[in-house]
Write a protein that binds this DNA or RNA. Structure first.
Lengths: 235, 235
DNA sequence: TACTGTGAACAATTTCACAGCA
DNA sequence: TGCTGTGAAATTGTTCACAGTA
């Protein structure tokens, strides 16, 4: 039992595990940045709010990465997780919608180091077309299919108004992307075999207000032994 | 039986249920916008990718909202869910960090209709201070405590670089906010009783690449009967 | 000693299936 | 008939506790 390459065919991994895998990765990067070469399931768990057993079980889905008596060598585990997540290589991403949010995504410094490169942006407003933002060229959305194919873009980010999101997603799929991150507050329909994730900013806030409102309710109400903690995803 | 006010003290609701509640709300708003006065658990479920039983069970945590034989009256259920989530009133929000992402958040049109109003923004860069963006005034971050207290801000959004996020969160808590949405890729520590949610853009992309990479692996590999669908949160 | 990996126990969540109301 | 609400069953996920390795 010692380090090894990730199991090639994970057969069926709960989505929650994949979520936590990303968190472990981020945390490991912080540990490395702090100069520590190794860490342990309990340390990792403590920092993220999980039990040590959970951390070990999660990682065990993919292989044997730990060293008994030692813990995990950070760089080793980072490499393994990136391999599992598929970010051991660079992914080409297209952004559709160069509004406020789109521009923010173009300027976001966190993508490149994690393996994502925005190689093209699209907008329907012709005054934006032809410019570059953060050295990403902006194309007429009418050319989406052509450009996405030509540049071999694999992932799409949808940052257009809700009413156009489905149409944009359809075009992205048509053009050959295999995964979509959607920032519009609608539920996209995508064909089987295309992955998608939705990020809805108002919904994130609602998760917080629920916890707050709930706390207020129990407080004024009469001290139920209620304990709803809204520590959803880490961070 | 029939409609009623949400149960006041939900005692203990799984976080996943709260997440879905937000999705039901969004979906119901779309149904209303389409002119339909009622919907059903199966319709709602189909649109979001859940079973009808799940929808009913989720809602049953909070009261009896449905009408046997009819389904759910959309507006009624919308009102009930907003009440449960605490967004039946307006929440005052402070934004810290007026970079690319911060500006996008200031310009985001989706907050107001869902009950969120950004009433103040803060930045350390003094050239930004004193201006308004989207008619939100930008203050020196040194005045965070003072302004947040004075304006009775309840929620904070952290959109500063990772290395400053914890310090900013500490100040927000000090100043009296009860909930935080964090956009920096770090795990914040907040005191018991403060709610937080983390949004990490690179992590969202990783959820997608995992699914894609996984699909590629099984494909080239040898057709395991693997079925990993990355249809995380809806959208 | 300090830690991992893991079967077995436990807990939570989801689905099923059906009674009951409009 | 069409739909909800809900116990009971099935499934999934988490924690415990310990054998085993460095």
């Amino acid at each position: 039992m010692s380090s090894s390459k990730p199991t090639t065919s994970p057969v069926s991994v709960p989505e929650a595990v994949v979520n936590r895998l990303s968190m472990y990765l981020r945390e490991l990067q912080h540990v490395v940045a702090a100069g520590k070469p190794t860490t342990s399931s309990s340390q990792l768990g403590r920092r993220l709010g999980f039990t040590d057993a959970q951390v070990r079980k999660d990682l065990a889905h993919f292989g044997h990465f730990g060293h008994p008596g030692i813990g995990y060598r950070c760089q080793e585990l980072i490499d393994a997780i990136r391999c599992i997540l598929g970010t051991d290589r660079q992914w080409k991403v297209a952004l559709v919608g160069v509004g406020n949010l789109g521009r923010a995504l173009l300027g976001y410094r966190g993508f490149d180091p994690q393996g994502f490169e925005i190689v093209a942006a699209f907008d329907a407003e012709l005054s934006k077309v032809g410019n570059e933002i953060e050295s990403v060229p902006i194309y007429d959305i009418a050319r989406l299919r052509e450009v996405v194919s030509a540049k071999q873009v694999e992932l799409g980010m949808v940052a257009v108004p809700a009413e156009h999101a489905q149409a944009v997603a359809d075009q992205l799929v048509e053009a050959g992307v295999t995964g979509i991150v959607n920032f519009a507050p609608v539920t996209l329909k995508v064909p089987e075999g295309i992955s998608k994730v939705g990020v809805d900013l108002a919904r994130e806030l609602e998760q917080v207000t629920f916890a707050v409102a709930n706390r207020l309710r129990s407080a004024e109400h009469g001290a139920e032994l209620d304990q709803t903690e809204a520590t959803k995803t880490g961070s």
